[in-house]
Simulated assay, not measured.
Amino acid sequence: MYKDNDFVYEAFSNLQELVKMEITVDSTRQPYDAVIQISNHTFYCIAKKNARKSSLGIVINQINEFKNSIKQDRRILFVGEYIAKDVADSLIQNNINYLDVSGNCFINADDLKIIIEGRKQIKQKNVNQARAFQEAGLKLILLLLTDKEALEYSYRMLADKANIALGSVSQIMKELEESNYILKTNEKRILKNIDDLIERWVVSYNDILKPRLLRKTYKAINLDYLRKIVSDNNTKFLLFGGEPAAEKMTNYLKPLEYIIYSNDDLSIIGKELMLVPDNNGNIKIYNTCWTESLNNEYLNIAPALVVYADLIGSGNSRNIETAKMILENEL
């Protein structure tokens, strides 16, 4: 599949102008997006158009997988058309060299050190303007990725199970076909390019849909009691996401921040969990964006894709590590 990486050349051209050093670029060396020479140093590049906080976890996981797939002594350089400032800071904290099209960079290799900050970024492009990656589309894609039988449902059933308009289903399914995410044959529909579809869903969910679902932020009067509620799994009206869900799914993460999905009355939730409103609290209550018909093998846990998106969107390195486990084992 063609990958639009023309911005890689622009990034290195701008860097060459800034540092007045000769830089050579070779973009034909698989599996790299480019191999570059700066002075006597070679860097193996992985490129991505936009790197925002909502996709930071995905970017870091991809870079780490890329590192593990090549020889250990090869230096990695992440190249982005747009790299948000908080993402750049996180890349530096993770000892990852980076460069954007404007020339902002952190490149550190033995006797070579180039740090450029503060150059005006190009305007970030919204790559998810298609209807499929707006609210209704995100609900439908969640259903398609979570329910293995959903691709065989009629449009009417898809609309009912995703709780969206029937007309929206037709338009979204057509977009997904045109974007090469669904292959339609005479007998059935097949999901394609699932990894890319998951990535776009996660970014759009965190950017577009999840902020609309937020209801209120709290703190716990008794955190041990809240942890017991999560552990007991006996609440009929609560579904846990993020860190508490990941703890149940992986037995790896001890939650510090709590995400809870529920459409019930906030006063009932607050009383049941012994919560008090606090804008700086570590407990966030969200509405659900799926119907009760969506099957889930974990009791009182949000769909695995939602949990994965919660962890990725946190930007926390341990959450990102746990998210990778869920991606590999649950999605």
Rank of each mutant, 00 (worst) to 15 (best):
N222Q: 08
N222K: 10
L223H: 11
L223E: 15
L226D: 05
L226V: 15
L226G: 05
R227E: 12
R227Y: 06
R227T: 04
K228R: 15
K228V: 14
K228C: 09
I229P: 00
I229S: 06
V230A: 09
S231G: 12
D232P: 02
N233V: 14
N233P: 03
N233Q: 15
N233L: 13
N233I: 14
N233H: 10
N234T: 07
N234A: 11
N234D: 13
N234K: 15
T235Q: 15
F237S: 08
F237L: 11
F237N: 10
L238H: 02
L238N: 07
L239Q: 12
L239V: 01
L239R: 12
F240Y: 08
F240N: 04
G241E: 06
G242L: 01
E243T: 01
P244Q: 04
A245T: 00
A245F: 01
A246Q: 09
A246V: 06
E247L: 10
K248Y: 05
K248G: 06
M249D: 08
M249H: 07
T250Q: 08
T250N: 09
N251E: 05
L253G: 01
L253C: 04
L253T: 00
K254S: 08
K254H: 09
P255L: 04
P255I: 02
E257F: 02
E257K: 09
E257C: 02
E257T: 12
E257P: 03
Y258S: 05
I259L: 04
I259R: 00
I259K: 02
I259M: 00
Y261C: 10
Y261S: 03
L266W: 06
L266K: 11
L266F: 06
L266Q: 09
S267G: 00
S267P: 01
I269N: 14
G270W: 09
K271N: 11
E272M: 13
L273S: 07
M274P: 03
M274F: 13
V276C: 08
V276S: 13
V276K: 15
D278W: 07
D278A: 11
N280E: 12
N280M: 09
G281V: 02
G281A: 07
N282Q: 05
N282D: 08
N282F: 11
I283T: 01
K284I: 02
K284T: 07
K284G: 06
T288E: 00
T288M: 07
C289M: 15
W290I: 02
T291H: 01
T291P: 02
T291C: 09
T291V: 06
E292W: 14
E292C: 03
S293Q: 12
N295Q: 15
N296Y: 02
N296C: 13
E297P: 14
E297W: 09
E297T: 12
Y298N: 08
L299R: 14
L299Q: 12
N300I: 05
I301D: 03
I301K: 01
A302N: 13
P303F: 14
P303W: 13
P303Y: 13
P303C: 10
P303Q: 10
A304T: 15
